[in-house]
Amino acid sequence: MVFRCFVVCISLLLLAISAYAVEPVERLPDPAMEARARSISTELRCLVCQNESIDESHADLAHDIRVLVRERLKAGDTDAQATQAVVSRYGDFVLLRPPVKPATWLLWFGPVALLLTGLTGTLYWLRSRPAVVPPALSAVEQAELERLLKDDA
């Protein structure tokens, strides 16, 4: 119940400004800097709307973070520093691309490891296959076979 209420609250936040994604008023005058802001924004998660980036999100909070990123860029931050400004407030959770560190090695290298294991396993399976000995037919199947062959004739 408590949680439901919180969801209601978040949805209110979402509704506060129900505009779409990047808004003209937010844009920076310098197109190169604006492009940087856009590319940073696409990899930052909108916290209240899940798996949407702040660049795509309509949420009010996403708007705030977009503005923050642009402020940082205007103040002369590099892309990494601007991203860090958001991470320092909200943690690694805002990064849609999780950082590569021991805790995420399994995530990042798991797929490759699995593919290699799969390839090795398949090769092993191919090599270890026993010579072909088709299983003998059971008596019932033998009878069935003869009956069918006779039908065909």
């Binding site: 990899e43 998660r45 798996n51 980036s53 943690g91 690694d92 959770f93 805002v94 990064l95 849609l96 691309r97 999780p98 805790a103 995420t104 399994l106 995530l107 990042w108």
Partner: peptide
Amino acid sequence: GTLYPLFLDAMDGPKLSVGFPF
């Protein structure tokens, strides 16, 4: 990618997001 945040959370690791860049 879908379940990693859950796994990490269960191991008392950091909260992560796994999105399209991954």
